[in-house]
């Protein structure tokens, strides 16, 4: 263990490459373009994740650097959480005032079931769709599905698929859609700020970062609400899945597939 950790900070190749990526991407800076009435923001962090991924396939990055990068992400997120903590502190009165919205919007995470489950069934996916759409598939949800259905079940494969997508492209995707939706729809940026806290540090950072870049004058409120919501999601996400998300998905899946099979039987009969 000691050996491992000592090598970690001595991995100068990794840290130098990251420093180079940061200097390059921050020099490029933020760019934006409009799609219809919405704005798509290209932030340095989005280039950074894509350049990092690209470098993985060059000889510059070896398996070792890729492994060593993981604990650095954890510590980086810790630093980010500390920063969010000191933003929340001074805004505590506003956060308490917005408490009801903050608590109730956690139920919005069930929106994934209503939007994604019909799509999954329409695309012909079977019980995989239950694992896929019962939640945003972060670590606690993956654990829950594995525990309940097993690793080699269709539900398990489903939740892993979404988990992998979220790991690889979650931050990029959230960063792109959050700025876009906030400029496209009439909803208040603060509502989107609360929605940014979906229980993943990097996705929250990307989503709220885009909001800040789009609405710089609301920076502190956006970050305070996003941070508070993320902490809430982290602590309630699993229970939300156990008691509401998963049973609801199972029920809706039964209803939707039954209707589908009856209607196809009727068609055949007619």
């Amino acid at each position: 263990m000691k050996q491992e950790l000592t090598n970690l900070w001595k991995d100068w190749r990794l840290h130098t490459i990251v420093l180079a990526i940061v200097l390059l991407t921050e020099t490029i800076g933020t760019h934006s373009f409009t799609v219809g009435p919405g704005v798509v923001l290209l932030l340095p962090m989005l280039y950074a994740i894509i350049i990092g991924l690209g470098l993985f396939f060059t000889p510059l990055i070896k398996e070792k650097q890729s492994k060593n990068a993981e604990p650095l992400i954890v510590l980086g997120v810790t630093l980010l959480i500390a920063k969010i903590g000191v933003i929340i502190g001074p805004s505590l009165p506003q956060i308490i005032e917005a408490g009801p919205a903050l608590l109730l919007q956690e139920f919005g995470n069930l929106g994934t079931i209503f939007i994604a489950l019909p799509v999954a069934i329409m695309l012909g996916l079977k019980r995989e769709s239950i694992g896929m759409t019962h939640s945003v598939a972060r670590e606690p949800n993956v654990g829950l599905i594995m525990d309940k259905y097993g690793f080699n079940s269709p539900e398990g494969r489903g939740v892993m698929a979404i988990y992998i997508f979220g790991t690889v492209f979650g931050a990029v995707f959230m960063g792109l859609i959050s700025g876009f939706l906030a400029t496209l729809t009439p909803l208040n940026p603060l509502s989107f700020a609360m929605a940014s806290g979906i229980g993943s540090g990097s996705m929250m950072a990307a989503a709220s970062g885009s909001l800040v870049a789009a609405f710089p004058q609301m920076e502190n409120d956006i970050l305070a609400f996003a941070g508070a919501s993320n902490l809430l999601s982290l602590s309630t996400g699993l229970y939300m899945s156990i008691f509401i998300g998963l049973p609801l998905t199972e029920k809706l899946y039964d209803i939707m597939t039954r209707r589908k099979s009856t209607s196809s039987r009727v068609e055949k009969g007619a």
Binding site: L14, A48, I49, G52, G54, E70, V168, A206
Partner: peptide
């Protein structure tokens, strides 16, 4: 964070 993440998710 995302630079390290990009390298790790490879």
């Amino acid at each position: 964070i995302l630079a390290y993440a990009g390298i790790a998710i490879g």
